[in-house]
């Protein structure tokens, strides 16, 4: 009898099915309901209301907040800016992360030192990173201007030139958190069996052939994973822009999250800000589903 009961239990479960066992999960689940599910519901409700901290509650307005967003030039610009930023930063994270991981995937001491240098900046907070980079981008007296001047060149002013501001923010972001993709790729590279490389060496395969025929196909799943993680993370860009350019010049760097911040916490239009949050949420879900779908269909080939 006891054995039969044990077999019918889900894997890993010890003991009988009781209500009391739910007490283990209850403290977290209540926190989750109060601080995640409830605000998510309130947020959806808010996005259909005319709710202004200064002007008061004006009742339900249906889809009006969303149609207003659709006609709001600054919001549309912020969506485009965010997508542009994601398109700039994600390929950089994947390519540079891969390059560093492949180059530093050995047991030399110097590689360990180099790995810690590239990962180290990730532990800094966004405010320290922006302080550092404002001193790099500062016109005339910044590190970039001084080093360019030393070799007789003049450096462009990244943060005040409309077309260069977003690439400049992308450089800051890659400098800040290249460590995560690099480490994820390193972990994946270490899963490739040594024998595969030894066989390739016996066949006199070139470095390029080894890379494209063995290394990259073996870590394809990680490449998709890193791309998805980066898209999700970079869609939420806020701190760097808020502190370095404050959305300028001429709205060129204002992302969606900053739009939400300004609508919600500067203008106090809660309904409008909540509606913008829903759009961000849907865009992020769509982008990650799209990428997972691309990753799947490639694997089936």
């Amino acid at each position: 009898m006891a054995e039969a009961a044990a077999l019918s239990r889900p894997a890993g479960v010890v003991g009988r099915r009781t209500w009391a066992n739910g007490l283990f999960v209850l403290p977290f689940f209540l926190t989750f309901l109060a601080l995640m599910v409830l605000p998510l519901g309130v947020g959806m409700w808010l996005s259909f209301q005319d709710y202004d901290m200064l002007g008061g509650y004006g009742g339900s307005v249906g889809f009006e907040n969303f149609t207003r967003l659709w006609e709001d030039k600054i919001f549309l610009r912020s969506v485009l800016n965010t997508v542009y930023f994601v398109c700039l930063s994600t390929p950089a994270f994947v390519a540079l992360g891969l390059f560093l991981a492949i180059s530093l995937n050995d047991t030399y001491r110097r590689s360990a030192v180099l790995r810690s240098i590239f990962f180290g900046s990730s532990v800094l907070s966004v405010t320290i990173v922006t302080l550092i980079w404002r001193l790099v981008y500062m016109p005339e007296r910044g590190l970039l201007a001084v080093s360019a001047g030393a070799v007789g060149l003049s450096s462009p002013s990244f943060m005040t030139t409309e077309s260069l501001a977003m690439p400049g923010i992308a450089i800051v972001t890659v400098w800040w958190i290249i460590g995560l993709p690099m480490m994820l790729f390193l972990a994946a590279l270490q899963q490739i069996p040594r024998e595969v490389y030894e066989a390739a060496a016996l066949d006199n395969a070139s470095r390029w052939t080894t890379l494209t025929r063995i290394t990259l196909p073996s870590i394809r799943r990680t490449i998709v994973l890193v791309a998805v993680i980066e898209v999700i993370l970079q869609f939420q860009i806020f701190g760097q822009v808020h502190l370095i350019t404050n959305g300028g010049p001429n709205n060129a760097t204002r992302p969606i999250v900053m739009f939400i911040y300004e609508a919600g916490f500067r203008d106090w239009s809660l309904g409008y800000a909540a509606a913008a949050s829903q759009v961000l949420f849907v865009l992020m879900l769509a982008a990650s589903f799209f990428q997972i779908w691309i990753g799947r269909s490639k694997q089936e080939d």
Partner: peptide, 16 residues
């Protein structure tokens, strides 16, 4: 809940 970004709930959370 893993899929919910902080920014999606920050406005209602602030009100609460």
């Amino acid at each position: 809940g893993l899929a919910v970004p902080e920014q999606a709930i920050i406005v209602p959370l602030h009100t609460m």
